[in-house]
């Protein structure tokens, strides 16, 4: 006798998307339906291996009966739900979310999808005026909630600031941070349960921070790098990648990705080795593997130096 986990038995519900009816399992999200239907739904804070936080709002859709738009990543379908993705309201909100983010953040490493959506929806961050000066290192983390200097509107406020490099394994480039919460979730209950970082401060001045913004080596961080694994904008990346980019030798066109199994301990985590010019530049894990769910430990993610042929 063999036991196979069948998961929870789910009934099918009927959802209409842009006038087309879909039969999907109860408990699916609207985004699941849209993905199944082949819609190109933009997303930033969503990840298949994390609990939806629906913070970025770029995946919003219209749902009949709801005045505000609805985040498709988090909302579960209900029988008879009527969804529209093809309306001007939806397009406007998606465009504005991308535009607002681009007006405040460096989105240049957010990947091809984001660049495509930005063009497709017509984001124009320059209309908010020229960017203001970058903050000094650590300054943004010291702002007090409920207070800010009144702006004159001559420049647009951004989150620009220097890159934080306080350890040998990864950098934090918070000028790129869109506060998608993914790193916090991966560090927290969704995976690592180390809770080294959290959102601190409030509103536009909110940051991802350790307690009292101490350097990572003083924090609870165990360098699993699962935050890097989920970061959508390049705000968190390995020192190896950062240095290669700085040196102008980052070469994604040469990159190959090979699946293998970690050589440490007996758990058997699937690794994806990202190799450029016969050198491992990054290690990730597929989010849909039952062993790792995309998450690794410090050895798996960074412990490959002994096979680097440098």
């Amino acid at each position: 006798m063999t036991t196979i986990d069948l998961g929870t038995i789910r009934r099918l519900v009927s959802v209409t998307v842009d006038d087309v009816e879909h039969r999907v399992p109860e408990g699916a999200t609207i985004m699941d339906v849209l993905d199944g239907a082949g819609c190109d739904t933009p997303r930033l804070c969503q990840a298949p291996n994390l609990t939806p936080v629906n913070a970025c709002r770029v995946c919003v859709v219209e749902v009949e009966g709801s005045r505000p738009l609805v985040p498709s990543c988090a909302r579960r379908v209900e029988d008879g739900m009527v969804v529209r993705t093809d309306t001007e309201r939806v397009a406007h909100s998606r465009r504005m979310v991308l535009e607002l983010l681009e007006s405040a953040n460096d989105m240049s490493q957010a990947g091809d999808d984001v660049a495509r959506w930005s063009v497709e929806y017509g984001a124009d961050p320059e209309r908010y005026g020229p960017p203001g000066p970058p903050a000094a290192a650590g300054e943004r983390g010291n702002r007090h909630p409920g207070h800010h200097a009144e702006p004159d509107g001559e420049t647009r406020a951004t989150v620009a600031q220097p890159v934080t490099v306080d350890n040998d394994l990864y950098v934090r480039d918070y000028a790129r941070c869109i506060l998608c919460y993914k790193c916090v979730e991966a560090c927290g209950t969704d995976a690592q349960n180390t809770f080294a970082i959290a959102v601190a401060g409030r509103g536009f001045d909110a940051t991802i921070s350790t307690e009292f913004a101490v350097p990572l080596p003083d924090s609870a961080c165990v360098y699993c790098g699962n935050c890097i694994g989920v970061c959508p904008t390049g705000a968190l990346k390995s020192v190896a990648e950062h240095e290669r980019r700085e040196a102008g030798i980052w070469d994604p066109d040469d990159e190959t990705v090979t699946s293998t199994i970690c050589s440490f301990c007996g758990v058997g985590c699937t690794l994806e080795l990202h190799v450029q010019h016969n050198t491992i530049v990054n290690v990730t894990s597929p989010h849909d593997h039952s062993v790792t769910h995309g998450h690794l430990c410090i050895k798996g993610r960074f412990g490959f130096q002994h096979v680097q042929n440098l």
Binding site: L169, I298, G303, H306
Partner: peptide
């Protein structure tokens, strides 16, 4: 094997 990489821990 692990001596090869620089662990902050």
């Amino acid at each position: 094997q692990t001596g090869g990489y620089s662990s902050p821990l």
